[in-house]
């Protein structure tokens, strides 16, 4: 197995007394798209800026390509492309100038791929950045990053301000990077985006990573929603320890099952004579809400 691309261990960052990052531990492996999700202010951007050597860590360690993110920033950045969530450009540079500048700062040049991306994202590169909307500024950074030949791509909420068509273009491009064996760290609010593209995800909350793993593994930790109709009454099911939020009207019932106990519950249901069964695996939204509302009580997960 190849070396992991990004390794973060117990990373901490404080601004004065405020602890922005308390304990960040995660690993991005070669060739995977890694999703990074969490609510506003949880520390996603702070983590990414620390990875970029823009912020200096207060504790723990972080490496990219096996090199320290602070001391070896320049060497790391040669093999990395980045798109921030809020792109600010120099008002009197045109979009085209900015794209070329960003490529050249990494010793790369305007390529046919750059032109193809400009066409795909439908950007008027002759306009001055002053006149660009947020979405257009975002496109400038995306075009520059995607046409950079890098080993690791870091996107921090890259599609904010983009319309759905452009979001689709972005997703195709990321899947293209994945097919080409590149590694991607994608921080996002758009869960469908993460669900579609990411191999593994980490959930951050108040400066701490509270869960890491594949989406499937996380689903295992969560509950599946079941809607069932049987020939015989369902009273016995309600008593099972793995069943939650049980609601029944006659022979129809809806309830949530701990995903790992799904088999046991099915075995208990079969003798009752199933006439209709609908099983909904937890969506990322469910997981997201469950982790975020932890103070709100465990049953929130089943809604």
């Amino acid at each position: 197995m190849t070396e992991p691309i990004v390794v973060i261990e117990h990373l901490q960052k404080h601004f004065g007394k405020f602890q922005a990052l308390k304990d960040i531990t995660m690993t991005v492996n070669a060739g995977e798209v890694f999703g990074f999700i969490g609510p506003n202010g949880a520390g996603k951007s702070t983590t990414i800026r620390t990875l970029l050597g823009i912020l200096k860590k207060s504790g723990g360690s972080a490496t990219i390509f096996g090199q320290d993110v602070w001391h070896e920033a320049v060497a790391i950045h040669k093999r990395l492309a980045y798109v921030p969530g809020d792109v600010t450009l120099w008002p009197n540079l045109s979009g085209g100038e900015a794209i070329d500048l960003f490529l050249r700062l990494n010793d790369q040049a305007h390529s046919p791929r750059t032109d193809a991306l400009i066409a795909k994202f439908d950007l008027d590169v002759r306009k001055k950045a002053r006149t660009y909307s947020k979405g257009n500024r975002q496109k400038v950074a995306l075009i520059a990053a995607l046409s950079t030949d890098a080993d690791l791509y870091i996107f921090d909420e890259p599609t904010s301000g983009l319309d759905p068509l452009m979001e689709e273009v972005f997703q195709q491009e990321v899947l293209g990077l994945k097919a080409a064996g590149k590694s991607v760290l994608l921080s996002s609010h758009i869960l469908s985006e993460v669900e579609r593209m990411c191999d593994r995800i980490a959930i951050i909350r108040e400066g701490t990573i509270i869960e890491t793993g594949t989406l499937d593994a996380m689903r295992q930790l969560s509950r599946t929603q079941i809607r069932v109709t049987t020939q015989q009454p369902l009273d016995a099911i309600a008593a099972l320890p793995a069943v939650h939020s049980f609601k029944a009207t006659g022979t129809k019932a809806t309830f949530a099952v701990d995903s790992e106990a799904l088999g046991d519950v099915m075995r208990a249901l079969t003798p009752l004579g199933i006439t209709a069964l609908q099983s909904t695996p937890p969506t990322l939204e469910d997981l997201f809400l469950r982790y975020y509302n932890q103070e709100g009580g465990a049953d929130d997960a089943t809604r």
């Binding site: 823009i54 320049v74 950045h77 792109v87 700062l105 520059a144």
Partner: peptide
């Protein structure tokens, strides 16, 4: 402070 240097910081520019 405005943020326009953020992308430069992320490049291989010391």
């Amino acid at each position: 402070a405005r943020g326009s240097l953020e992308l430069v910081h992320a490049k291989s520019v010391s």
